[in-house]
Amino acid sequence: MKPILEKLLPQPDASFSVSAKGQPLFDPFLHKHDMFELTYMPRIKAQRFIGDNVREIDDSELVLLAPNLIHCWHILRAEEQTISALVIHFSEDFMGSDFFKKPELSGFQKLMKLAQRGIKFNGKLVKDIVSLMQDMRAEPPIRRFITLLRIFEIMADASSDNYEMIASANYKTLRDEKEYKKINQIYGYVQQNYMENISLQTAADIANLSPSAFCRYFKKCTHKTFIEFVKEVRISRACHMLRDQHISIAEVGYACGYNNMANFNRQFRQVTQKNPRTYQRLFSFEANGTRKF
């Protein structure tokens, strides 16, 4: 997986961009860019990476990301959607260097700082904002800008109950290009090889460090150990398999890189607070319409 530093350009008639993306092609590689990103993803199965957070998603979500926050949605399954993924990109100075320093925007400025960890919104405001994002695509430039300000207003007025942080409190955006490329290559190595034996030595070689130095380096950059990260990737993939496929728990464990089922069960519980059998049973109930969790 090659590291990607995405260069985003505004639309010809605007200082910011609004676009729609088909989910199968949406952000398949870990990347970052120098703009704020507001993304709406319709319900879809994906393994989401934002900062130091790895999670399987199976629901729609509205997320605000600050510049240089590494992220991707690795699609596990996509279906035809009536609503495409919607994305707005804007720079901090897209209306001048002092634009967000205006007192009228003080509430949104606070959210911009929180977005360094990534913000996931919830509640009724998601529906309201998505409706505005859809409208923007057909609006003339001035009306599009007014609609963007309306979105800023809705987010700024959101209570703490209407959003949650994604990356950990200790996570810091990777701004150094060398560090970013190393971490991206390591993420790629794990993503491509989670079903096999993950070698600490290989990961250390990718970073051009000794194993002990690599462990310290990875913890410094991500605020989690390399072993914890590998575990999260594997268990996230195991969750997807348990929910989507009628295969045995042992087959899922082996397919996700576990040769020892006791270890698989223990790590699954550590991440999900459930054992694999309970997890599979819960979502088989949901699929059959017997019970909704």
Rank of each mutant, 00 (worst) to 15 (best):
L209V: 03
L111G: 05
S19T: 15
I154S: 06
K127D: 15
T202W: 00
F285A: 11
A213R: 12
R281V: 09
D135I: 11
K32S: 09
Y187R: 04
H89E: 02
R137K: 15
K182P: 00
Q192S: 09
T225Q: 05
A158Y: 08
E179F: 10
P10Q: 08
S199Q: 06
F283W: 05
N263T: 11
N208F: 05
E80K: 15
R281D: 09
S19N: 14
P42C: 08
Y254W: 00
P211G: 05
V63A: 03
M95Q: 14
P28S: 04
K101M: 14
K2C: 00
N53W: 00
D161Q: 03
N260M: 01
Q116R: 14
D93H: 15
M195R: 07
K101E: 13
C256D: 00
G257I: 00
D157R: 11
A85C: 13
T82E: 15
A207G: 09
A255D: 01
F49D: 08
I183R: 07
S91H: 13
F268C: 01
F268G: 01
K181H: 11
R277G: 04
Q185W: 02
I154N: 07
I83F: 06
I206M: 06
I142T: 11
C221E: 14
I166E: 01
K292G: 06
L282Q: 09
Q47R: 12
D93Y: 13
K2Q: 12
K292D: 13
T290C: 07
D58T: 07
I206Y: 05
G51L: 08
Y180C: 02
T173C: 14
P28T: 01
E286I: 04
F214N: 07
Q81R: 11
D59P: 00
K2A: 08
A262T: 09
E139D: 13
V233P: 03
N197I: 03
Q134A: 11
E177A: 12
G107V: 07
I4V: 14
F214A: 11
K219I: 02
L125H: 08
T202D: 03
C215R: 11
M133Q: 13
I142A: 14
N122F: 06
F49R: 13
K231W: 03
F108H: 08
P276L: 02
K220Q: 13
D58S: 12
A138G: 15
S15F: 12
Y187M: 06
C239E: 11
P10W: 09
M241T: 02
L62E: 03
R117I: 06
R77H: 14
A156T: 04
N260S: 08
G123P: 10
A238F: 02
K2G: 10
Y180M: 03
D13S: 15
E104P: 00
V230Y: 07
H240T: 06
M136W: 05
C239K: 11
P3G: 08
R237L: 05
S131E: 12
D128F: 09
R137G: 12
D244K: 09
H71D: 09
L242D: 03
P141I: 05
D52T: 07
Y180V: 04
Y187G: 02
M41P: 05
A78Y: 03
G51P: 07
H240E: 02
N162S: 10
A167P: 03
M261H: 10
A255I: 00
P3E: 09
R234G: 04
R77Q: 12
K178H: 12
G253H: 00
L111S: 08
Y163E: 02
F36H: 10
N53E: 04
K124S: 10
F264Y: 01
E179T: 08
T39A: 15
P42A: 07
I206R: 07
S131R: 15
